[in-house]
């Protein structure tokens, strides 16, 4: 804040960069000589304090922060792995596959719990549950649902009140949405019934948490399923109007992960950035680190946190994905 210049270049037409970004910001100090290119799915608002803190401590390093959806990040990065230093994403499966494909740099000296890292390359730094966010007005005089089953009952009870007013991820567009969906489907049969109910209610499908929450705050939808709780808490301005519910039957919890590209133009500062991120995660500094910290006991509620293991690649298999998406479309899209 003191001596950096934060430039918002969102609407600036870039010559030579065909890519369109959801958001693009530069964080530099006057003395910055190296620029880190970070491609991330995390909203700038939440991530900016972390970057500013980093730049303040490392004035020779500037950061170019590029925001995109989780699926696109995977594609963009795969086509141009030397164009970025760091990849930060909430789609754990896509991130793990990037590492498995040998696209991440090993940072052997970084000390991190084994369950929160993979191959010393992929480092988790948040634990974020998928939440149901509801507009309190829509449930005035009715019981607030606490589980998926109760949500199904509430929706079935008053279909007219919720028709066209429920939202969830479009798993075909959102990587993290696909991750949540597949993990939900693994965990509980209720997921498919809920999807069918949502389908009958003409569910609105979103690419990203941000858009979903925007529509929620605007009152366009009354229920958002599988939103990132952290985003909701940060974005919802009128706390009394909305409620963030972590389904008590099975809270699917994702860990946001970061990795350094094996072809990173600036591997040293990139590694320093991850070290900084991991250190901030465990430091007691809520002003800088506004994201939910890692859950110390990742398995406290029946494997609630999605594990970083090769099994994450299962649903990325082309055949399996085709089959899952088909089934999902079958349930959700009912013209």
């Amino acid at each position: 804040m003191r001596n950096f210049v934060a430039l918002i270049l969102l609407l600036f037409p870039q010559i030579g960069i065909a890519q369109e970004w959801e958001d693009r910001q530069l964080f530099t100090a006057d003395t910055s000589t190296q620029m880190l290119r970070v491609i991330s799915s995390t909203d700038t608002v939440l991530f900016a304090p972390i970057i500013e803190h980093f730049v303040a401590e490392n004035p020779s390093i500037g950061v170019e922060y590029l925001v995109h959806g989780t699926s696109d990040i995977d594609q963009i990065f795969r086509t141009d792995p030397d164009g970025f230093d760091l990849v930060v994403s909430s789609a754990m499966d896509l991130q793990l596959k990037l590492v498995n494909d040998g696209l991440a740099l090993r940072l052997p000296d970084l000390v991190h719990p084994s369950w929160a890292q993979w191959r010393q390359s992929l480092f988790a730094f948040t634990s974020e549950p998928a939440a149901i966010v509801i507009n309190n007005d829509a449930f005035a005089g009715h019981k607030i649902p606490q589980t998926r089953q109760q949500l199904i009952e509430a929706l079935r009870e008053r279909p007219d009140a919720f028709r066209g007013r429920v939202g969830t991820y479009d798993i075909r567009k959102s990587g993290v949405g696909y991750l949540f969906a597949t993990q939900d489907a693994r965990a509980t049969e209720t997921y498919w019934r809920l999807m069918e109910v949502l389908g009958t209610l003409g569910v609105r499908l979103y690419c990203c948490s941000g858009a979903m929450i925007d529509d929620l705050t605007d009152g366009r939808i009354a229920v958002a399923y599988n939103v990132l709780g952290s985003y909701a808490e940060a974005r919802v301005e009128n706390r009394d109007k909305f409620q963030v519910i972590l389904p008590s039957d099975f809270p699917t919890t994702m860990m946001r992960t970061a990795m350094v590209s094996v072809h990173a133009p600036n591997p040293e500062p990139a590694a320093a950035f991850i070290r900084h991120l991991v250190a901030l995660q465990s430091a007691d500094n809520d002003e800088v680190f506004q994201l939910p910290r890692l859950n110390i006991q990742p398995n406290d509620i029946e494997r609630a946190t999605i594990a970083l293991e090769p099994a994450l690649m299962t649903f990325l298999d082309a055949l399996k994905r085709r089959r899952f998406v088909a089934e999902w479309e079958n349930a959700v899209i009912q013209e």
């Binding site: 040998g102 191959r119 594990a307 293991e309 090769p310 099994a311 299962t314």
Partner: peptide, 19 residues
């Protein structure tokens, strides 16, 4: 081919071997 989640899960190793 509906690959079971366990197929790759059982390949987890303490050294995070690539699959």
């Amino acid at each position: 081919i509906d690959i079971p989640y366990a197929s790759f899960s059982m390949l987890s190793t303490p050294f995070d071997d690539r699959v």
